[in-house]
């Protein structure tokens, strides 16, 4: 009986979690005039005009492509930088290792809102404004420390004897690292990639500040739904729904890794 109550509670919570998203989906399938004139729990008169508008107008859909490009770049960069560093932290004692680790983490604590202007100046100076690489690089500020943190946990779970055996067998470090070690922690790599993707995809401030048109992400483009005639709720909702899709796809692909990764690693 207790188990059932518990499951019921969980289902109730999940319903609460999904309802606001359902409501936005409902709005996205209706025209703005319909939304404002009638209140309805479901889209009685389904229309895809909001989605068609987004997919046929380049100024809308390019936002998605831009965001996908810099998020992918950032995930790859974060992993490439963090993997060797996490190995160093999990295996070696070296001068200033504790301080370095803490310093990395402090970079998550800087208030981003006030670093915007210095960021704009810095990236203007090196001529990177309005490029995908600029946003990817800026997002490394909080994603690389997080990646090091998560990966270090997974790596510490692998016994050091494996490294020693491989080196005795004559493996060079790069070959050992890529062909033996990384496959061993692939669940950890999956979880890390998930977190990097997530934090880069949801970030707005840096992405908006460092881009003008060429690399402008959809979250920044969305503000255009406010026009002279007021807010176009249907269009805004359709945009919102479309920003959820890539995330949902990523979750779907890593769902097994995620369950396993969360179970094995210290996270």
């Amino acid at each position: 009986m207790r188990i059932q109550k518990r499951t019921l509670g969980l289902i109730f919570y999940f319903v609460l979690l999904v309802v606001p998203i359902y409501w936005m989906l409902n709005m996205s399938l209706r025209s703005n005039a319909d939304i404002l004139s009638t209140f309805s729990l479901y889209p009685a008169d389904i229309t895809f005009e909001n989605y068609i508008k987004i997919f046929t107008d380049e100024s809308w859909y390019s936002g998605y492509i831009n965001a996908m490009i810099y998020v992918t770049l950032n995930t790859l960069m974060s992993l490439a930088f963090a993997l060797p560093a996490a190995y160093a932290f999990s295996r070696f004692k070296f001068l200033g290792d504790g301080q370095m680790f803490f310093w990395l983490l402090t970079n998550r604590m800087a208030p981003p809102a006030v670093f915007l202007l210095p960021y704009f100046q810095l990236y203007s100076t090196v001529n990177l404004i309005d490029t995908h690489i600029a946003v990817a690089l800026a997002h490394c500020l909080f994603n690389v420390p997080l990646a090091v943190w998560i990966l270090e946990g997974f790596m510490s779970g692998i016994p050091k004897e494996i490294d020693e055996t491989a080196f005795i067998d004559g493996y060079s470090f790069p070959r050992f690292f890529i062909t033996i070690f990384i496959p061993l922690i692939r669940a950890g790599v999956g979880v890390t990639a998930f977190f990097c993707f997530m934090f880069s995809w949801v970030e707005l401030l840096f992405a908006r500040t460092l881009t003008v048109t060429e690399a402008k992400p959809i979250v920044a483009t969305m503000t255009r739904t406010i026009s002279a005639t007021g807010l176009d709720w249907g269009l805004l909702a359709a945009n919102g729904i479309l920003t959820i899709v890539p995330g949902a796809l990523v979750i779907w692909f890593v769902r097994n890794h995620l369950a396993k990764g969360f179970a094995l690693g210290r996270v």
């Binding site: 998203i21 709005m27 949902a248």
Partner: peptide, 29 residues
Amino acid sequence: LITLAIPLLIPWNVIGTIWIIFTRPDIGL
């Protein structure tokens, strides 16, 4: 796990948008 992860993968200003649409006294559930 999938249900739990969904809110985490929504861009932060879209979160605001969802809740505006959800709580507005004229159109929100």
